[in-house]
Nucleic acid binder design. Sequence first.
DNA 1: CGCGACGTTGATTTGCCTCAACGATTGTGG
DNA 2: CCACAATCGTTGAGGCAAATCAACGTCGCG
Lengths: 195, 195
Amino acid sequence: MNSKRPLANFLESFIHFSEEEMNLITESFEVEKISKRQKLLESGKVCKEYFFVVRGCFRMYGIDDRGFEHNIQFAAQNDWIADISSFYTGKPSLLNIESLETSEILKIHQKDLYRLFEKIPKINRVFKVTIEHKYIELQNRVMQTFSSTADQRYLDFLEQYPSLSNRLPNTQIASYLGITPEFLSKIRKNLTNKG
Amino acid sequence: MNSKRPLANFLESFIHFSEEEMNLITESFEVEKISKRQKLLESGKVCKEYFFVVRGCFRMYGIDDRGFEHNIQFAAQNDWIADISSFYTGKPSLLNIESLETSEILKIHQKDLYRLFEKIPKINRVFKVTIEHKYIELQNRVMQTFSSTADQRYLDFLEQYPSLSNRLPNTQIASYLGITPEFLSKIRKNLTNKG
DNA sequence: CGCGACGTTGATTTGCCTCAACGATTGTGG
DNA sequence: CCACAATCGTTGAGGCAAATCAACGTCGCG
């Protein structure tokens, strides 16, 4: 199946898998086309699936007491997304996952993933490394949030995620940075005046 | 060795290890007494060791451009601490790890940990779960930072980490919450007036 | 004892939010 | 293919949460 090629490539970039192993893996995933603004996970439900993004873009976000949304992370092609907290604890998720573009994903159900972990233990490593990456990202983000003002964080975002900042609406970027869209607009105005 | 007992208990709470396995594991760790304000890791150096806290308390923190410190996380007894980012990438750390009390730790060198991963693969699971916990903690923290004001975050901290909030100086808690000690003091005053 | 870390308080400033209003752009159904 | 709604980006006036700066009291400890 053609849309499973990116997953195979992604996995191979970590460890080599035999053809048999790779078949077992890719067969455990299901292709799905996702329209814009479609939800993969809704808060209150348990996250039972892990998603690999083949093409398109997603955001994971929470909603606070006053009804405001806050983006926790984005995921574009060749990235993974799931509410790890809910997935591993089995508790209802506090977060939502939603597409920001027409997208295509590969999804694997929890029980199939656990079966893969048993049958092909070395695939554990891929998921361990993936979480480590996301952990590091969050750690940097906490540090950055406490260290710098919003305009610096915006500049850092542009530099760190050029491919994302091109395609995302500013409202989504503002939500990720923890500021209002209005204030981001003012930051952008200031920057063009200077640059 | 008596001070390795807590580690053995911790590991057993996840998976069972044979006596032989457990010996191999505990022998890979070295006991170390740590005095107050002693550093286990200094920014600029590569984090080559993973630490298990037997007793006492530590903080991991970064220093921003203006010289201000920001606490990323605390670790008390039965918790792990290391700069995972530096440990796994091999790059110099941006963070510091420092004791806040007289403490006792078990430390394992990277090469010994990797040897354990090979010889006793199932121990991987313990470290995977540990990182997942810390990932979830960070995720909640980002969400909380963007959602609520400092007094709410302070109350949440008291509730979530009662054993830490008892023993930590308020300056350290303020640094963790991302506010100044002065402002935390004002928050506390307001709360006592109300309560 | 005297020094350094810690906690507190007040006056002032600032980064960012709130609310309201208004173009521009996109998209969607008739 | 146009009309209209919805989303997005911008601008301005005013307000609030938290920082800054400075001063001072307390406590533990070498």
